[in-house]
């Protein structure tokens, strides 16, 4: 096709709720707005199901940044957003311990028509990753330090 795939790009995983971020991403599509292709959006019912272990594994597999787009106060699930926040907080701690830059994980409330916040999150994560580099390099550095 063309040359865009030859340079390695940081990989961004977006876990987006069906009632929030995923619908928001669809909305961004309906508006035909552009963002970077290094994003993989996976639909989730509620990110409260993901444990710290899941996030850490993802980083270890080579995901450079994760944006959890949950529904915030608009969540149809009682206690879901709160639980999600708790899990993300725990993950931050673990990331600190493992020497993974905590900027790689972001929790954001995205509504079904939040096109601007959606784009902002994606762009900011890209900027952050351009600054801090690949997670594999970070983990390798950690290995050396030890």
């Amino acid at each position: 096709m063309n040359e865009t795939t030859t340079t390695k790009e940081p990989k961004i995983l977006i876990l987006a709720t069906l009632s929030g971020g995923y619908a928001g991403a669809d909305y961004v599509g309906q508006q035909h707005l552009n963002y970077s292709t290094n994003t993989s959006i996976l639909p989730v019912r509620c990110p409260s199901m993901f444990s710290t272990e899941f996030y850490i594994k993802a980083f270890e597999k080579g995901i450079d940044g994760i944006i959890v787009m949950y529904s915030g106060t608009d969540s149809p699930f009682k206690g879901g957003p709160e639980r999600t926040a708790v899990m993300v907080d725990q993950t931050y701690k673990k990331m600190g311990e493992l020497g993974i830059n905590i900027k790689r994980l972001k929790l954001a409330a995205i509504c079904t028509v939040c096109k601007k916040p959606f784009l902002k999150q994606v762009n900011e994560m890209n900027e952050t990753l351009n600054e801090i580099g690949f997670v594999q390099d970070e983990l390798a550095d950690q290995g050396k330090d030890k």
């Binding site: 096709m1 865009t4 991403a25 599509g29 309906q30 035909h32 552009n34 963002y35 292709t37």
Partner: peptide
């Protein structure tokens, strides 16, 4: 919605 419509500027990607 999450690929062709948002990456019209980068067909390869």
């Amino acid at each position: 919605e999450q690929d062709s419509w948002v990456h019209s500027n980068n067909p390869g990607g």
